[in-house]
């Protein structure tokens, strides 16, 4: 499969999806079912890897590209991931110049506020997956308290959580590993 062909197949998934993993069915159909350049297991691994590394979930196409064709495949995946972002330019330009209009402002603010509600909804499956034992529940609660009551950087809280979990694992307190 050529670089351009892989890019276009991945782009077909990313440009028609509005959330990180929403592109998965399209890309699965193209690369796993029809082209056989990727296995279903590799596809799952690509998702697991990007959920375990910093950055947006949409990065999974980079991992999938790497599994399909090495570094050039990863570059094709990266290009497929960033290309749709350029579509925001005309809409930002258009809406930005009309932001003083009360109706445009009301529409955009309603979308942002709805996004906050959706984010809370997204925390539910993330919580089910991550808060699996007393230690991780304690980490989640302590993290939220620190975020709400202090100005500690998010990166430090995540690093601290990782260190606490490693310590708990060392003394056998993380149940999910056993």
């Amino acid at each position: 499969m050529s670089f351009l062909e892989l890019y276009l197949l991945l782009l077909k998934g990313t440009a028609t999806a509005f959330a990180g993993l929403a592109s998965l069915p399209v890309i699965q159909d193209a690369l796993v079912t029809h082209r056989h350049v990727l296995t279903a297991e590799q596809l799952n691994e690509a998702v697991v890897i990007t959920r375990s590394t910093p950055g947006p979930v949409g990065l999974w196409v980079v991992s999938a590209g790497y599994f399909a064709a090495g570094v050039s495949g990863a570059i094709a995946g990266w290009l497929a991931m960033i290309t749709p972002a350029l579509l925001v330019i005309p809409t930002v330009h258009f809406a930005g110049r009309r932001m003083k209009h009360p109706r445009v402002r009301a529409i955009l603010e309603t979308v942002v506020i709805a996004s906050a509600g959706l984010l809370l909804a997204a925390a539910i499956p993330l919580g089910r997956e991550a808060l699996t034992d007393p230690v991780t529940i304690a980490i989640g609660v302590a993290g939220l308290v620190l975020l709400l009551t202090t100005k500690i950087e998010v990166a430090w809280i995540i690093l601290g959580a990782a260190i606490v979990a490693m310590g708990a694992d060392t003394v056998g307190l993380l149940y999910y590993l056993t």
Binding site: R51, S52, V112, I113, S115, A116, G117, L119, L120, A122, A123, L126, G127, E129, A130, L131, T132, V135, T136, I137, I139, G140, V141, A142, G143, L144, L146, L147, L148, V154, I157, I158, L159, G160, A161, A162, I163, V164, A165, M166, A168, D169, L174, Y176, L177
Partner: peptide, 22 residues
């Protein structure tokens, strides 16, 4: 284990972000 702990903290970050945005 480190990743699992970091993702647990990420749940808190996600919840806090709702307020940051709204």
């Amino acid at each position: 284990a480190a990743i699992h702990g970091a993702v647990a903290a990420a749940v808190a970050v996600t919840v806090k972000t709702c307020w940051t945005i709204a």
